[in-house]
Simulated scan of single mutants.
Amino acid sequence: MSEPQEEPEAPPKKASKLPLLLGILLGLAGAGGGFYATWSGLILGTDPHENAAPEAQKAPSADVAYVAVEPLVVSLRGAGQNQHLKFRAHLETSPESQPEVEKLLPRVTDVLNSYLRALEVADIEDPAALTRLRAQMLRRVQVVTGQGHVNDLLIMEFVLN
């Protein structure tokens, strides 16, 4: 007897890659659209250039007065070295606030002197130290003078001997 012949099996169909490619393409398009909508302010309602450079957007005001702070010379704690810091600054204020700030100059000098004396030489030697120290001193001056009286602290001299 003869054996029944086996029919050749059809090879399994390969899964189509079309749905995968369409999914990736639609995902990229959605991500790009979402990025653009957020960046342009359509979703969150912010201007992308609003926070780009706040210093560049501020126009210098003509209504500014400067109050000079007495020069300070403080000795700094160091590793067996006796070093001195010479500091001179001006306070930027509005012309209306200038008399009030001038009345409080002894307190401002005291708070700056106390802060600078607490520093160590290592605190000053860091390249980014001046920006950090300036922000700390401005905050202390604003606490002493009251909110809204002093806009900025301008460092005129900062010399370590």
Rank of each mutant, 00 (worst) to 15 (best):
L116F: 00
A62G: 15
G23L: 10
E3A: 13
Q83D: 07
E7T: 13
R132A: 12
S40H: 09
D47A: 05
S16P: 00
A129T: 04
G30K: 00
V144L: 08
E9S: 09
P60H: 07
W39F: 15
V141M: 06
E3T: 13
V69G: 03
F87R: 05
I155Y: 03
E50H: 08
A15G: 09
S40F: 08
N161P: 11
R117E: 14
R139N: 14
V159D: 11
L26Y: 01
L25Q: 05
Y36H: 07
A29V: 13
S61P: 03
P95L: 06
A15Q: 11
L72H: 07
P12M: 09
E102H: 03
P99G: 04
V111I: 13
A118D: 15
M156R: 15
K13C: 04
G41T: 04
G78E: 08
E102D: 10
V141Y: 05
F87S: 02
M156C: 10
D63H: 11
H84V: 14
Q98V: 04
L160V: 10
G45L: 07
A56G: 08
E92V: 11
A59M: 13
K86C: 01
S94I: 01
K58W: 09
V73K: 09
G32D: 06
S94A: 11
S2H: 12
R77L: 11
V150Q: 09
A135P: 01
E3S: 14
